[in-house]
Design a binder for these strands. Structure first.
Length: 383
RNA sequence: GGAGGGGUAGCGAAGUGGUCAAACGCGGUUGACUGUAAAUCAAUUCCUUAGGGUUCGGUGGUUCAAAUCCACUUCCCUCCA
């Protein structure tokens, strides 16, 4: 067994008294971050509309980039030539790359799965492209993020048990192949991805099998693909206790406030989601009183900030009426200001969550949140 | 003064006898968005007590039936004098 310390390790500092919520420090080659953490998504080596300086200002830690998309443009070779993603995009803090497994789901119209890997039809020019677990890891080695992900199949929902079983087993074989192909285990930590859909035994099997392979961290995948909140929480419950206590647990693609709270209470350390940035570009804001569609007529003459409890640059300087105007006029500044707000809102939420965990008040913190929005934990829309 | 072209829903613009409350685009309103093919997508946009009612510059005709044909009228544009 490899006795060497992995490049990325989680130091659990405190576990909440009456929940499974954990506070920890994630050590990475590009510095430490506190967990639970929300990680903004910057697929094409850019958190859309947001500069690295703005990310530092809102106290972002880890950000994501995407293997599939960077493979197509500008190609991993060019990122490698630049000295890796950190140099290329001028981000000094930790970076995580997703493997392309989500594109197996999101680009499902244009791909074919085989045991060997996935053949994609390039959405840009129609070329046939082949992504294997080895190729995904090789690309991620060139991209040089701190954390890299196993190439998996993010399966559709719903899927039959038989389909899911085959998929889980294939994804496990792919995880093994990727692990064996990983050339930079001394500088990049590889995470395995638990699959199994809504099936308890498959989730357990997937988690236990991955743990035997000994990854530096584990993520729960196949979530936020159309299932109900209730189902998603079950997906977590079915596998999380099989994951090692002292390694990072990452719930993929989750970024609504309610789901984050439900993840944390179950012992999840890391979250990522395009939701805050995407809905920002489309005019929706997250706030301490729920979601706000800033394009609505009611904000035409509303010169208050989005959220007077928010400490972000946008809330400190701009009114709802002005932001409404910018978004309606399709101004880039509007998308940028709303993105800053939504990201800061979630990052601040995580700061508050960590504080609550450290104070052994997380359960009350979570209950208060749900009570405030008069929602139960499985409302589909969330907040 | 002469010749020609044109006025269609908030705007632009199709339509040139029935299947037209009228394509399409913009604008307006409302939703959605969860490991980003997403500055995207969807619904709705004459009035309505939902059965209907009133529209295609105006008025009057032809016709079973008119935004569409005819007459007059009004306004706009181009060219000639």
């Amino acid at each position: 067994m490899n006795q060497k310390k992995p490049p990325v390790t989680l130091e659990i500092k405190h576990v909440c008294q009456d929940t499974k919520a954990r506070y920890g420090i994630l050590h990475t080659p590009h510095g430490d971050v506190e967990t639970p953490i929300f990680m903004p998504v910057g697929t094409l080596a850019s958190v859309k509309f947001i500069s690295p300086e703005e990310l530092y200002d809102i106290n972002a830690g880890i950000i994501l980039a995407n293997t599939y998309h960077l493979w197509l443009r500008p190609t991993e070779k060019i990122v490698d030539n630049a000295g890796g993603l950190h140099q290329f995009m001028n981000y000094k803090r930790p970076i995580l790359t997703d493997s392309g497994g989500f594109q197996v789901f999101s680009l499902s119209e244009n791909r074919k799965i085989s045991e060997e890997g996935v053949t994609f039809k390039n959405h840009l020019n129609g070329d046939s492209l082949f992504l294997s677990p080895e190729k995904s890891i090789q690309i991620q080695n060139s991209l040089q993020a701190d954390i890299i992900m196993s190439f998996d199949e993010c399966p559709p929902y719903p899927a039959t048990y038989d389909y899911m079983k085959d998929s889980v087993e294939r994804t496990l074989r792919w995880a093994k192949r990727g692990q064996e192909a990983h050339q930079k285990a001394d500088t990049q930590s590889l995470f395995g991805i638990v699959q199994g859909g809504e099936f308890e035994d498959l989730r357990k099997y997937s988690a236990e099998s991955l743990v035997k392979m000994d990854f530096d961290g584990y993520s729960i995948g196949g979530t936020s693909v159309g299932e109900t909140k209730e189902t998603m929480y079950k997906m977590i419950d079915y596998c999380i206790d099989y994951l090692p206590f002292n390694k990072p647990r990452y719930l993929m693609g989750v970024g609504s406030v309610d789901a984050i709270l439900e993840g944390v209470v179950r012992g999840v350390d890391m979250f990522d989601c395009v939701l805050p940035t995407r809905i920002a570009r489309h005019g929706t804001l997250m706030s301490s009183t729920g979601r706000i569609n800033i394009r609505n007529q009611q904000y035409e003459n509303d010169f208050r900030p989005i959220d007077d409890k928010c400490d972000c640059y946008t809330c400190k300087n701009y009114s709802r009426a002005y932001l409404r105007h910018l978004i309606r006029c399709n101004e880039g500044l509007g998308m940028r200001l709303l993105s800053i707000h939504n990201l800061r809102f979630l990052i601040k939420l995580m700061e508050d969550i960590r504080k609550a965990i450290l104070n052994d008040e997380f359960k009350a913190f979570k209950d208060d949140y749900f009570a405030r929005f008069n929602l139960n934990s499985v409302d589909s829309r969330g907040f």
